[in-house]
């Protein structure tokens, strides 16, 4: 499994995609922006491009010729997706903290980069995974429709959450009002978000394994 992950890191992922989180993360410094967009870039740019690379480099056949199980192949691909998503989130969290320090008195229309917001971000990425990974493994090489559907689903979640954060008093208070400074609430939302992300990703992995078994290469 380790060798498969190293294979992805060395061959599958262009070095640019290790730098991209720092470029997109810096967008957290725009005061009061729609911060969901920052991590949506991993869904919109990084993952579709990596899977386009897999397709053009014949990775499906190359990897299947190696002495590894089909399950491990899926696991390594899911692993690399999760790694890149978390890299984007962690870098964005750091830039988010800088942003909070830079603009302490700003009034947020969209979500403030609190711990709870990062929980919501993880749910958004979990939704992306649960759509993209099983859809891709229907053929194990097509990524276009899987990208469109999964990006749309993640986007709808983000838009819905932002809308609630503006129109619903409870949610607004939780993320931008008194709840924003309550670490107990914020960490609970973060933890819940992490659990949802993990659960959705595991569901995606299992569904992908089942589909990949049936794929004729």
């Amino acid at each position: 499994m380790y060798n498969l992950l190293m294979k992805e890191l060395r061959l599958g992922v262009s070095p640019w995609f290790y730098a991209l989180p720092f470029v997109t993360g810096a967008l957290m410094l725009i005061p009061g922006w729609v911060y969901f967009v920052v991590t949506l870039y991993v869904c919109m740019i990084t993952i579709p491009n990596i899977f386009a690379g897999y397709k053009s480099q014949n990775d499906l056949m190359f990897t299947n010729m190696l002495p590894v199980s089909k399950k491990d192949i899926v696991k390594s691909k899911v692993g690399i997706i999760v790694f890149l998503e978390l890299l984007h989130v962690i870098v964005a969290v750091v830039f988010g903290a800088v942003s909070l320090a830079l603009y302490p008195n700003i009034e947020y229309i969209f979500f403030k980069p609190t711990a709870g917001f990062w929980g919501l971000t993880l749910i958004m990425l979990g939704i992306f995974n649960v759509c993209f990974i099983p859809m891709h493994y229907k053929t194990a090489y097509k990524y276009g429709s899987a990208s469109i559907v999964s990006i749309a689903a993640a986007f709808l979640f983000a838009a819905g959450a932002e809308w609630l954060g503006i129109s619903n008093a409870f949610v607004r208070d939780l993320f931008k009002g008194s709840g924003a400074d309550d670490w107990g609430i914020q960490l609970s939302v973060l933890l819940a978000g992490a659990l949802v992300f993990a659960a959705l990703t595991i569901i995606a992995y299992r569904a992908a394994c089942k589909r990949f078994k049936k794929v004729e290469i």
């Binding site: 061959l11 480099q57 014949n58 990775d59 056949m61 190359f62």
Partner: peptide, 12 residues
């Protein structure tokens, strides 16, 4: 069939 044509032999 070719695989990873942009990679060098050493890397592959």
């Amino acid at each position: 069939v070719d695989f990873y044509t942009r990679s060098r032999i050493r890397t592959l």
